[in-house]
Design a binder for these strands. Structure first.
Lengths: 411, 411
DNA sequence: AGCCATTTGAGAAAGAGGAACACAAACCTC
DNA sequence: GAGGTTTGTGTTCCTCTTTCTCAAATGGCT
């Protein structure tokens, strides 16, 4: 994923890079591991592991501590931990109705996290960039060392170009072709790489790395709020598409002559499974916000037939759209997130019924549907993972210079 | 892709494997290259290339010949060619109404190709396997050396498990849960690995490697016939899903209360864009075969308004389904194949209009829609590529033993 | 025709990195 | 406390590419 390191020719140095990368990945993913566990996981010899760990410790990406005794015979193996002080990222999120910032250390520990409400409606890109920068500063106060900052990752509710943070559309913010990347870089004024991606894409990444989808290499995440976003992981890698615009599942046509969608089309999936469709079916004003949805949820919990029917119908449409996605991708897991997490119990049966009817048997036997485990912070945590990616892909590049930061990502 | 070579630890031997692999891939893809071109493409040094080529020549995967003089100064560089006699695959195809077999040499040269009609209707798996085996024998008569056979690739019109050729569903053949892999292995009686995949998946692979989509890393191929299949390439790799059931775009719901589909669902894409929908719209019996479709095509070419309207409506639905796929995957290219190639001129305008309306602007600006360049043999050529894959991924494994064939693929 | 610049192949030596092996250290069990 | 087991340490070996030097083969120019 990412990283333009696509020189085809390999040499011994490549081997070291790759081995360092797998070790740092293992540490980042699993937290603490003994040296001998690393031997087992990587297939490398004890000598090789020793040398590699030594380099990581010297470069402050890992620390070694005394072994814990687990009662098995044999010499105990020292524990290796990712060093959260040696490498930190800044994660930012522009959500539907909030902004968030967090600092996350190598290994995934969240050092600091702030979330502030965002007044509903249009805000200019410049304003948002400025406010994000403020949050970023407040959250970076306890940064271990100034040179420990690996990079910045930004989750955006909208269609955003991965390479430079150009936002093509963000209906919730009223943006269209806004150069968020430029403004944010300016507002931050830091000389570190900034990476951008869609919030649902990043939620999928987070759930894949640290949530319910851990160890699952083919998954689809559907993130419901006002609109519906999606994130795809295929073969263990986030599916981005050519420019990073993939996963826009909210706009697959499921009801071609249906209601008009914010995107200009008709009968997009989100016109049937977004919150306004639910509210409409529940007989409430479709523009109601989270509170209105919560009210429908409460009514459903209390057994109100109108609310239950509204969820059932939403579930039916969820199943219809998901069936298409599953037939296309043959995933192992579907993860429902955002507002869908709370709705799940009430949409479940109609959803599964549609899957039974519409997904090809071979695929149907495999997929399971679950809800997120990381909750509302999934996109933010995904942004952290995004920012870590260059380090994970090539720790060697990070180990050597150590004085200045690596040059801004070229592509 | 494929290959269980997922030991994480790298060593010097890994480097050699990887370098041999990139060289063989380049040769297989580009045909003839000079040594110095290989230096340029791989980033390796002249010495390294020399050693690697030497090994390939010794292992009969490549031949070296005199340089061609192109008028530039400097010592001419010898030309390296993939050796089609050193490595050959057998490609088989079970299509809607035909069976085909071909032998293809390293580099992509088709040595021999046979296609026979398949009487429409149900045939047992055993019969088909036997007939395929016969074709296979007839086409393997001119095999250079018995030990040059790398493997067998099979394209199947249906949902087939990649690992073992278990066919879950093949409506055109009337199959359901048939162990094609077992029967074919028995009928062939050869001790070589056999790989299976869906025909549209393989057509996509072929167009990616040797057709219109060469050099394009994110594409969607839609293969229209009685039903509609799809093949996806993401980030340069075929997207298979967990079990190889991906790409079943024919069964995305586009008209949830529409006509019943062979799969048991309602309003699947193929009920609107398959040949029977076209025939129905053209006022003809929907069960008509290729001849009936050709008649509608002829009528359209002659300007018949009913035929033109039938195509226009089909194009509209093509656009609706494609819009969803494009929004999900953000591909660079959509390739239309099978019966859709001939229909394209008549469906084009309504198709593009729907894309304009339904695909998010950011993605819309990127995608182009084209037709196949390899024609009806695309799936067969893809099957050859599939069979070559283990060799391309690790030529070293193929170079060493050379006496016996590599053991049957384990997973 | 002859000389020069350029590109590339050939061969030997060097450098980088992991594997293999032998040995010592630290833990368990009895 | 002795023996078995597992793992860290250190040295040597092996593989593979790079680096460096020299020779070969071509085009361009006078």
């Amino acid at each position: 994923m990412l990283i333009g390191r696509d020189e085809l020719g390999h040499r011994s140095e490549t081997v070291r890079r790759a081995n360092l990368s797998t070790i740092v990945r293992e540490l980042h993913g699993s937290g603490t591991l003994s040296r001998s566990e690393l031997v087992g996981r990587t297939g490398l010899t004890r000598s090789a592991i020793r040398g590699l760990i030594g380099e990581l410790v010297a470069g402050r990406l890992a620390t070694e501590g005394p072994a814990t005794l687990d009662g098995t015979p044999g010499r105990p193996s020292p524990l290796v931990r990712p060093d959260p002080n040696g490498a930190v990222v800044l994660a930012l999120e522009i959500a539907v109705d909030s902004l968030a910032a967090a600092t996350v250390g190598l290994g995934g520990e969240v050092v600091d996290l702030v979330r502030v409400d965002l007044p509903r409606g249009r805000s200019s890109v410049v304003d948002i960039a400025a406010e994000l920068a403020e949050l970023a500063v407040s959250v970076s106060e306890h940064l271990p060392a100034p040179d420990a900052l690996v990079g910045v990752g930004v989750a955006v509710v909208g269609v955003v170009r991965r390479s430079d943070g150009m936002v093509s559309t963000a209906p919730n913010l009223g943006w269209r072709d806004e150069p968020l990347g430029v403004h944010l870089a300016e507002a931050l004024g830091w000389d570190v790489p900034i990476a951008f991606a869609n919030d649902a894409d990043l939620a999928a990444l987070a759930e894949h790395r640290r949530g319910v989808a851990r160890g699952i290499d083919d998954l689809v995440l559907v993130w419901g709020s006002v609109g519906v976003g999606g994130g795809l992981v295929v073969d263990g890698e986030p599916l981005t598409g050519v420019a990073g615009y993939s996963g826009e599942v909210g706009h697959i046509p499921v009801n071609p002559d249906g209601r008009p969608c914010r995107c200009g089309s008709l009968g997009c999936w989100e016109t049937e499974v977004g919150t306004s469709a639910l509210l409409r079916r529940a007989g409430r004003p479709p523009e109601g916000g989270n509170d209105a949805v919560d009210a429908v949820l409460a009514a459903a919990e209390a057994g109100d037939p109108v609310a239950l029917a509204a969820f059932a119908e939403t579930g039916r449409w969820l199943g219809i759209g998901l069936a298409g996605i599953i037939n296309i991708l043959n995933p192992e897991l579907v993860v429902l997130g955002g507002r869908l997490t709370a709705s799940y119990p009430f949409v479940r049966s109609t959803l599964e019924a549609e899957l039974d009817r519409r997904v090809l048997r071979a695929s149907r036997r495999i997929v399971r549907v679950v809800t997120t485990s990381l909750g509302a912070d999934a996109p933010l945590l995904g942004a952290a993972e995004l920012a870590f990616e260059p380090l994970l892909a090539d720790p060697a590049a990070w180990l050597r210079p150590r004085v200045a930061l690596p040059a801004l990502a070229s592509a």
